[in-house]
Design a protein around this nucleic acid. Structure first.
Lengths: 345, 345
DNA sequence: TCACTTTACACAACCGATTGCTTAATTTTT
DNA sequence: AAAAATTAAGCAATCGGTTGTGTAAAGTGA
């Protein structure tokens, strides 16, 4: 309702008979101000309800204390967990977090990057959209010495920080897990192959088969567009029209895996006895579906926290060198009923 | 790597022989600049890679074009959907969104509110933490004419915008739905009663029972702290130790409801025949559990979009009057297998 | 006691736009 | 053709802090 009763350090300076520089420094406990004066000023500021204007501070000091986040869609459990980690660890250090969703559109990602740049974020954490094949729009940050952390969905050739899991190995152990359960013909739900999270998973899958001398049947490897619930059921239906259907499914995400389970059950196919299934991510639905979905643990929250840490560490460095540092977090198989067959000795 | 090759309107002014005011106005197509000059300047800015500094603009124009969001935890599906709605509609209009999680702690909520205020957000969208009973920390916004929108978890007596659903009626129709399926002894998983989303749901529940002349057994109404998965199973276990256990459950959220279903199934109790269950929210897990959970549709995304709209509308208003405007969005029963009994005629 | 540090604070430029007020040049009106 | 109105652009203050430099006062040492 009221306008402009915001008081500034100028007001405080006048009232307390100090210069604005003294006020400013006193409020941050700068060493050049005596403790007595600092206390006096801080108390007065508190009493009068002084609130600093971060915009002014950011402008002058060229430090917005803000981290920009560029992701596909917050609604995905993996993404929201990751952002939760980013926000929590950022706020702890006094940083704000601005989010931007690409909704998996390249154009959105580009314009969001501009907006974040204009807001002078002092670091950016990004997970590429499905469409993105060119990452030039992140160069503007690097050029200005602003740290860029790519997380999970990372580009192939961009010198910056990366926070990832080992998708190749994760897929390998997931596949091996199915093989250990006796699967001989394993299908793979692959994602868009230009995103290396998915291409690496496919590679890991294939390597595991090779290593265990299993036949690689191209018909069982399906490149899916969105790995959605609908696509999962549809692809499963196709697979089970084959003369020689699979006895195991390794899906690149949980959504499609759960969809497959529900579809197969409806068809009277038994899980895990006829078909063993393993997903990827450990979304909430995976522990609810019956039989519960085995999956790969994906440390979303931790990846978010680590990404924030990378940004903050970079900002503390003197040289501001933009090094390439790749952090690979641990994953493991979460073994649930959808894949575990009773030992038949 | 490089530092300070950021060019400003001063640089453009010098190079193009115009004043900074002309540059500034030309870039925004201000009417007092001829189309020719404007084009010239815009083209030059484009070529040289000029990027505006939003911080400076925000400071001077006293408009940060940023919306602050205060919620409990992004990881909850309802919350992330809502934020997705907020972000999408905000960015469409050129606004940034800063998020802050309270993790259901009052103290966090208070300090987050300060941080958002200091960042000079030009509007705030908040959903209260579980702990919050006092909302004085939102007065600072109102006092400065900054619009406040409370969404979903709203306070009782705070003059501002509210975006809610009719929890009372939603609970009423959920309960009635169970009654229609033949339930006579319905249990209710209630949440923290100082949050009116939960107290209203309890009221709606009770009224529905009264209206249908069903006995109200206090032992069947459980005030839960977090409505978590663990708590859901535990409370269900207690309820079914009663001599006279319930034949229906209306849970204030889906998590606890799903937990109840899984627990009951394990006990050999049939859903919906022995016990019909309905939840609240329509989280993803509710359509995955078997039998699929009936629930109340909760328009999370729309609530987010509408909240943003309220902020933007307020900012466009001349007077800036901080009116109390309550928007109530529609809900409905989503009827699934967990509650629908075959007609036995 | 005098030169030398330290301490405590003030001065004033600065960050990069925005904007009310002027002014000069053009166009329109009479 | 002179006066009035319009158009196009410049001047300079301003938003609210931050920070390098300067300086008087107080403290230290020989």
């Amino acid at each position: 309702m009221k306008k402009k009763n915001t008081l500034t350090i100028y007001d405080l300076a006048r009232e307390l008979n100090y210069s604005t520089s003294t006020i400013s420094r006193a409020l941050k406990n700068h060493k050049s101000i005596s403790k007595k004066t600092a206390q006096l000023i801080q108390r007065a500021a508190e009493e009068r309800g002084y609130r600093p204007n971060s915009l002014a501070a950011s402008l002058r000091s060229n430090n917005s204390k803000t981290i920009g986040v560029s992701i596909s869609n917050i609604s995905r459990p993996f993404v929201s967990d990751m952002i939760s980690g980013i926000e929590t660890s950022a706020r702890e250090k006094g940083y704000n977090v601005i989010i931007s969703q690409s909704h998996d559109s390249y154009d959105n990602e580009v314009s969001n990057a501009k907006a974040l740049y204009d807001s002078r974020v002092c670091g950016i954490i990004a997970s590429l959209s499905m469409q993105t094949e060119n990452t030039d729009h992140f160069n503007q940050f690097k050029d200005q010495g602003i740290p860029v952390v790519f997380v999970d969905r990372v580009p192939n050739n961009f010198q910056s920080y990366h926070v990832i899991i080992d998708n190749y190995t994760s897929a390998y152990i997931a596949t091996e897990h199915l093989i250990e359960q006796g699967c001989k013909r394993i299908a793979h739900f692959a994602g868009s192959q230009h995103l290396n999270v998915y291409s690496q998973r496919k590679k890991g899958f294939i390597e595991a088969l090779k290593h265990h001398d299993l036949e690689i049947d191209e018909r069982l490897i399906v490149d899916m567009k969105t790995l959605s619930f609908e696509e999962g059921a549809q692809v499963t239906a196709e697979l089970f029209k084959l003369n020689n259907p699979p006895d195991g499914i390794f899906s690149s995400n949980d959504t499609a895996a759960v969809s497959a389970i529900l579809y197969l059950k409806k068809q009277g196919i038994r899980i895990p006895d006829d078909v063993a299934v393993i997903g990827f991510n450990d979304d909430p639905i995976s522990s609810i579906v019956e039989p519960a979905l085995s999956t790969i643990y994906h440390p979303a929250q931790k990846m978010g926290e680590l990404s924030t840490r990378r940004i903050l560490e970079h900002l503390e460095k003197e040289d501001g060198m933009h090094t390439t540092e790749i952090s690979v977090l641990e994953t493991h198989v979460i073994s649930r009923a959808s894949s575990v067959r009773k030992k038949s000795t």
